[in-house]
Structure formats: structure tokens, C-alpha cells
């Protein structure tokens, strides 16, 4: 296929139907479960999965669980409720803050932040996020994370994170995705339902997920689709415009932080065309011409994707098994 800006266009109606058929078959015939549980965040991925599940199982057999914590934007719950109402699903609200306090999520994270920025005090209204350098196409900067602390007066301070503090912030923050996973399985086991995941292909390929967290699911309903294609499904499925227009966020850090800032370093439409080109071995010159970029810019993106895939390969590995040496 010739590479073009339209290479990720899909027949949304046919794709939706295909996923619905797979969900019905997989959940009912293979897993022998009666319905589905979806964690809804007010983002487009979970909105699309909820809509597909409603088509597959009817609203009566779908549970939508909202799992905000004290760092979540109030928009997340509001948008999730609006969506559930539209799809005629009764949403369940699970405030994750007490569980996360029990794990020491905030305390452990904030300790690491304070080692870098001693003035940081969450109780006094400080917020924080971690980000990668922007403008992937125009700089050769490597993927070194920075911490941004926002003071109550709005003043921002950004500095490069040492590895030790980075690891502690991420390890503590990942309690969120893993606690959400545990909560989804509570509801799934309560009803003999399956947990349907919402991670998309770009997140999976480049390692933007939490092992045994947001991909701790029974079905990866969108794992084969780029985010750009998820948006096409969202339009077809009549997902509210407020959700479709919302910049994708990880809903993890207390300061507003888009997925582009935190990890991808590019807008999704550009990033995914380049990722597709790399995956399909499209020559740099052809990609550059189709996208109006230089070959140097294309190569920068290819290098970034390759490094991310290599660095995060561990996340995609199943548990290693020791060969059984005691057979007959």
C-alpha cells in the first residue's frame, strides 16, 4: 500500500461490528462470562469500549466503573457520567483515594518530589507532573524526564529528574493503575463478568501502560487500533463531542498533563502515521514527502519509537517460566 496521510483510515462501522462480534464470542463462548466491566475515565478510549460493550451485551450486562482519586480532574467523572447516561448504563463511583492512601501512593510519590523540589507541599496546593522534552521532530534531545512543580500562585518550576526520584515517582503513581485493576476485578468477579481493557495500539507498542495495571484485563478491545482509529470509531459511535475533543491525559498526576507531554512527544495524528511507517518499513523519503517533513525529522521519530519499544520490552513480556526438568 502506498503511504499517505490517509493510511490509518478505517471503515468504522465494519470495525465496530467486528469488535462487537469478537467481544460476544470471546466473553460468552470462550470465557463463559455473562457481561463486561469497563473502567471509564472520561477519555475517548474507555468511552469507545463502553459503547462497544453496550452493543455487544446490552446496557443491562455492562458495568461502568468510575475510579477517580484526589488528583483526578473533576471533568473525568462528569464526562464519564454523561457518557453512561447516554448509553443507558448505571455508573458506579469508586473513590480510589482511601485505597491509594493505604498503599502510601501519595506519601511515597511526594517524598521523591520533595527531594528534588523541597518547597513542594501537596497539602498547601502544590501540584506536580513529569514530562519528556517536547518537539521530538525538531530536537535531538533524549528521553530524560523532567519534574514540573506548580506552586499555588501558578508559578512553575521544571528540572531534570534524577533516575532514583523518577523511579520512585513512577512506582508510587503506578499504584493508581494497579488499584483500579483490582477494583475492576472486584466488580467482574461479583457478577461473573469479564474486564474489558481500553489501551490502544500506540500505548501498547511504545510501552505507555502499567504492567499488571491498566493492561491487567481479560480482553484488549482496542489493542489492535491506533488512537487515530479509535477517534474514528468514537465519531461513528456518537461519543459526546466533549470527550472526543478532550486532550488525552493519563489522569495520574496532580498537575494537568497530556499524554503528549508525558510520553509521546508528538500529537497523536503525526506520531501514529510515523509509527505505522516504521512498522511497515516505509522509506524515510516517502514518509517525509507524504507528511511534509524532512528525512531528519522522520528519522528522529523512528529512533525514538525504536528506543521506547526496546526500553519497554520487559513490560510486554509474560512471566518467565523455568523449564520443567522433572518430566518422564
Amino acid at each position: 500500500m502506498t503511504f499517505s496521510k490517509n493510511v490509518l483510515d478505517i471503515d468504522a462501522a465494519a470495525e465496530a461490528e467486528r469488535i462487537v462480534r469478537s467481544l460476544r464470542h470471546g466473553v460468552r463462548q470462550v470465557m463463559r462470562r455473562h457481561g463486561s466491566v469497563v473502567g471509564v475515565s472520561g477519555g475517548v478510549d474507555s468511552a469507545v469500549v463502553l459503547a462497544l460493550c453496550v452493543r455487544a451485551f446490552t446496557p443491562r450486562n455492562v458495568i461502568a466503573v468510575m475510579m477517580p482519586d484526589k488528583d483526578s480532574s473533576p471533568d473525568s467523572e462528569r464526562l464519564a457520567r454523561d457518557l453512561a447516561r447516554q448509553l443507558e448504563v448505571e455508573p458506579i463511583l469508586e473513590d480510589m483515594t482511601p485505597a491509594l492512601e493505604g498503599f502510601g501512593c501519595y506519601r511515597r510519590r511526594d517524598e521523591a518530589i520533595r527531594r528534588v523540589v523541597p518547597a513542594y507541599a501537596a497539602a498547601a496546593g502544590y501540584t506536580a507532573k513529569i514530562t519528556l522534552p517536547p518537539n521530538l521532530l525538531d530536537t535531538d534531545t533524549l528521553n530524560v524526564f523532567s519534574l514540573t512543580v506548580v506552586a499555588p500562585d501558578g508559578q512553575e518550576r521544571t528540572q531534570t529528574l534524577p533516575a532514583r526520584e523518577f523511579l520512585q515517582i513512577v512506582a508510587a503513581s503506578n499504584f493508581k493503575q494497579r488499584a483500579r485493576m483490582a477494583m475492576l476485578y472486584y466488580h467482574a468477579e461479583l457478577h461473573n463478568y469479564a474486564v474489558i481493557g481500553t489501551a490502544n495500539r500506540s500505548e501498547h507498542d511504545q510501552g505507555f501502560f502499567v504492567k499488571h495495571g491498566d493492561v491487567g484485563v481479560d480482553v484488549k478491545a482496542l489493542g489492535h487500533l491506533y488512537k487515530t482509529q479509535v477517534y474514528q470509531l468514537a465519531t461513528y459511535l456518537d461519543i459526546p463531542e466533549a470527550i472526543r475533543r478532550r486532550p488525552p491525559t493519563s489522569d495520574t498526576y496532580s498537575a494537568p498533563c497530556t499524554q503528549e507531554e508525558f510520553f509521546f512527544r508528538l500529537p497523536f495524528d503525526t506520531m501514529e502515521l510515523l509509527a505505522y511507517a516504521l512498522e511497515h518499513g516505509t522509506p524515510r523519503a516517502e514518509v517525509a514527502e507524504a507528511m511534509g517533513l524532512t528525512e531528519v525529522q522522520v528519522q528522529r521519530a523512528f529512533d525514538d519509537f525504536t528506543r521506547k519499544r526496546r526500553t519497554t520490552a520487559y513490560l510486554r513480556m509474560p512471566p518467565m517460566e523455568i523449564a520443567d526438568d522433572h518430566g518422564p
Partner: peptide, 9 residues
Amino acid sequence: DSLGVMDLV
């Protein structure tokens, strides 16, 4: 890996 770059910094 990229974590190693952070350590080098």
C-alpha cells in the same frame, strides 16, 4: 537504556 541516560546525567 534511557534510564541509564538519566543516571549519566
